[in-house]
């Protein structure tokens, strides 16, 4: 059984551009385990939230604490909505993110490729993969760094069901082995399948943070109720 991770404490973070708040005074105490799905309509601040967590952008104020050097955002990896693929082979793409490649990491890369349905494509030009395969490659590349925290920004938005299933299965497995996962999606059914807890955002504000089972049964805010019933469209 894996060690229980400490909670992630988000204290009063804000992010604004030209005076417009994209995320406003957000405070949360998030479980350090499981899959946290971030939901909200377009422009709600989901991607900004993820980028702030990963350190890609800095908040105007406030702090994000993990209470552990081992379990921190310094040891995180991010998968973007549009897979960014380098112009080289599949295997080279995976190993690119490793500073000094050890023999066991090559074995791990091969295992990850098997798990994500990319076996036998080691030397194939990664640019020739399908959209779904590219996204699976992105996930393999993130996982080879053995991140404690994995951040995924709509990774299955533009890909076929087979790839979605591959990715969801791997995420469940990683989550149960102790990796904290933040997952942004617009797909309510996917959120139901994956979420241990849900963060629901609207206009840069956290409207709800609750267990997945509770959120989908009884959302407390009117905004979340509307979102789930499709009145607030995210398209």
């Amino acid at each position: 059984m894996f060690k229980k991770n400490p909670n992630i404490n988000i204290n009063n973070i804000s992010y604004s551009i030209n005076g417009k708040f994209l995320l406003n005074r957000t405070s949360l105490d998030i479980s350090g385990n499981g899959i946290t799905v971030v939901l909200g309509a377009n422009g709600a601040g989901k991607t900004i939230f993820l980028k702030l967590l990963s350190g890609l952008i800095n908040s105007d104020n406030g702090k994000i604490k993990t209470h552990s050097n081992d379990f921190s955002f310094g040891n995180s990896a991010m998968v973007f909505q549009e897979p960014i693929i380098l112009r080289r082979s599949v295997l080279s793409n995976i190993l690119f993110v490793i500073e000094k490649i050890q023999p066991h990491q090559k074995i791990m890369a091969s295992e990850l490729m098997d798990t994500l349905g990319l076996s036998g494509k080691d030397n194939q030009n990664a640019q020739t993969l399908s959209a779904g395969e590219k996204q699976r490659l992105s996930l393999a590349r993130a996982l080879i760094t053995q991140p404690k925290i994995l951040l995924l920004d709509e990774p299955t938005a533009n890909i076929e069901p087979t790839s979605t299933i591959y990715i969801e299965n791997v995420l469940r497995r990683k989550s149960s082995s102790g990796t904290k996962i933040f997952f942004v999606t617009h797909d309510i059914n996917q959120a139901k399948r994956l979420a241990n807890d849900i963060i629901y955002l609207e206009n840069g504000q956290v409207m709800e943070y609750t267990k997945g089972s509770i959120f989908f049964k009884k959302p407390t805010t009117l905004s979340a109720q509307k979102y789930l019933s499709g009145i607030i469209s995210d398209i």
């Binding site: 890609l56 990896a77 991010m78 960014i84 380098l86 112009r87 080289r88 690119f96 993110v97 760094t145």
Partner: peptide, 21 residues
């Protein structure tokens, strides 16, 4: 840029990748 930043890729390695790619 964001991909390299998220994986803490050093500047030299990043520039090398830009040129190779």
């Amino acid at each position: 840029r964001e991909f390299f930043q998220s994986f803490h890729i050093g500047r030299l390695k990043a520039v090398n990748a830009y040129i190779i790619d």
